[in-house]
Design a protein around this nucleic acid. Structure first.
Lengths: 107, 107
DNA sequence: GAAATAGTTAAGTAAATGCTTCAGTGTTAC
DNA sequence: GTAACACTGAAGCATTTACTTAACTATTTC
């Protein structure tokens, strides 16, 4: 579910926007309401809600509404999935380099 | 230089596109020419070059031209920078959860 | 129950993105 | 020297994106 390419697509797409990364950054320091997320951003609350909906659709953020306040949290599992995708490619490359080094050392 | 927010922006933006991630994936298994990168993709060579230019501008891929062939490689340092950004946020969140757990355990 | 608060939704718009085609350039093979 | 090859660049176009404003729906507060 988390490695499904469509979800991965949504996650990387979500992380591509600076405002959304700023929101993730804020949330990494603890939960926040929509207004709290919006506060440091130079855009309308409406725009923030739209970004937030993308973040939620991507699985990176989970929200729950109590009364009139929507509280947002990071979903570390999703972050880990994105992290993992990058990590695997980097390691694959680095292992290849190691094997090449071994081969050259032997000759 | 790698943690400069503008560069990070370019990297995440580059990773947001499925075709570009497929190119990175291919390159993680070893260097490739532009045509080799293009081969599995259902688009014109010209489109692939445009994607490649973005990847290069983001620092994720380095290329060098010998004769008429441009050979492309992954730049693991850049991948590591993106990885690191995500990792820091996730850890920050998880550490917070740990502290919260400790606090609740004490009471 | 009226007013303030917190968020939501829809419609519109300007700019960015991901292509395409076509007309090149430089390189290598014959 | 000419033909094939491996790209490159510009122009154009359809779609998507990141907003805006304005009208609206719940909840609290007083």
């Amino acid at each position: 579910m988390l490695h499904d390419p469509a979800q991965l697509d949504l996650m990387f797409q979500a992380l591509a926007d600076p405002a959304r990364r700023q929101m993730v950054d804020r949330l990494s320091r603890g939960p926040a309401s929509v207004s709290q997320l919006a506060e440091p951003l130079a855009m309308s609350l409406s725009a923030v809600v739209q970004h937030l909906n993308l973040l939620e659709a991507s699985g990176l953020v989970r929200t729950q509404k109590v009364g009139r306040v929507r509280t947002c949290q990071i979903e570390p599992k999703a972050l880990r999935a994105a992290e993992h995708w990058i990590n695997e490619r980097r390691l694959s490359w680095e292992r290849r380099l190691d094997r090449l080094g071994d081969f050259l050392a032997e000759s």
